[in-house]
């Protein structure tokens, strides 16, 4: 199994712990990753400014992977939504594809609509499979309870992702969480968006959205909030202290990436999963995990 690894903007600069751990997981399961240094921004921030420019930006990345005959693996959920949606449109609308290819021609690129785009976690779910993940678990996280948040663009807009999960009643991400042996919790604000896209427009609204989710996660006593999107991480982890200050509340909700907890369950050590780089230290969670080992 081989994919072009699409890093996007936020992962390689602000979330190296995610990138490190995701690469380790891929290596473990024999997924070969090809880095394409010419990849640029997926186009997400430009959709608000000019949709055709954003579409051309997406198409350019798709064309670069297609040129090498590779499907794309994404790490960022927002990049996933943008590239999947662009791919869906370019595959089904020949006129639009021709129009966009005229823009790409400048760089001698062309997109023919022959590749697929999948999030890292979807690849684990569909191409590796829950069964195989479970068979490989060496240290089941059975003493831990997690709140999951894959991010809105993991399966929305569903018309572009089909056939995949039902966004009104999703189950894929919970199954991935539980494959580690942990319990996936249900909580009141499970569906709530992180607010990241409007952080630069109205920080107060974005903070309020993130606060609601974090409080809801805290209420069900989750050991951690588990993400697969670097911009959700910007909201829930990197801004968590600022949110505590703003609202004069205590949250202290550890936030980890799915690749990190899966790595722990596969028997990898904390160092190679970049857990030291997490900003809200998952101290209690790791203690629970390590205590159990001592008792065995």
């Amino acid at each position: 199994m081989k994919f072009a690894l699409y890093l996007g903007c936020t992962v390689p600069v602000r979330n190296q712990n995610y990138e490190m751990s995701a690469r380790k997981i891929c290596k473990y399961f024999g997924i070969e990753l090809v880095d394409i240094p010419d990849f640029t921004c997926c186009g997400f921030p430009i959709k608000s400014v000019n949709q055709d420019t954003a579409l051309a930006m997406s198409a350019r990345n798709l064309a670069l992977a297609e040129k090498q005959g590779l499907n794309i693996m994404t790490l960022c959920t927002a990049c996933t939504g943008t590239l999947v949606e662009a791919n869906h449109l370019l595959k089904h609308n020949e006129q639009k594809r021709e129009e966009i290819n005229k823009i790409l021609k400048e760089e001698n690129l062309e997109y023919n609509g022959t590749i697929e785009v999948k999030h890292f976690a979807r690849i684990l779910y569909e191409d590796i499979g829950i069964k195989k993940i479970k068979e490989n678990i060496k240290k089941p996280l059975s003493m831990l309870k997690f709140a999951g948040h894959p991010g809105c663009h993991f399966y929305k807009p569903s018309e572009a992702f089909a056939p995949f999960d039902n966004p009104e009643n999703p189950h894929s991400y919970d199954e991935l969480l539980e494959a580690t042996g942990a319990k996936a919790l249900h909580y009141e604000e499970e569906e709530l968006c992180c607010g990241g896209a409007i952080l630069g427009v109205r920080q107060d609204i974005a903070y309020n959205m993130a606060k609601k989710k974090l409080e809801s996660v805290k209420k069900v006593n989750a050991d951690a909030l588990i993400l697969i999107c670097p911009f959700c991480d910007v909201m829930y982890e990197q801004n968590q202290k600022a949110i505590e200050k703003e609202f004069e509340i205590e949250l202290k909700v550890p936030v980890l990436y799915y690749s990190q907890i899966l790595g722990l369950a596969l028997g990898m050590d904390e160092k190679e999963l970049g857990i030291k780089m997490n900003r809200i230290k998952p101290k209690e969670m790791l203690e629970k995990l390590n205590n159990k080992e001592l008792n065995v």
Partner: peptide
């Protein structure tokens, strides 16, 4: 307006 810039793109309405 400022409000026109406030969609967080969660796609709940879209769905």
């Amino acid at each position: 307006s400022e409000f026109v810039w406030l969609c967080s793109t969660c796609y709940a309405c879209f769905e």
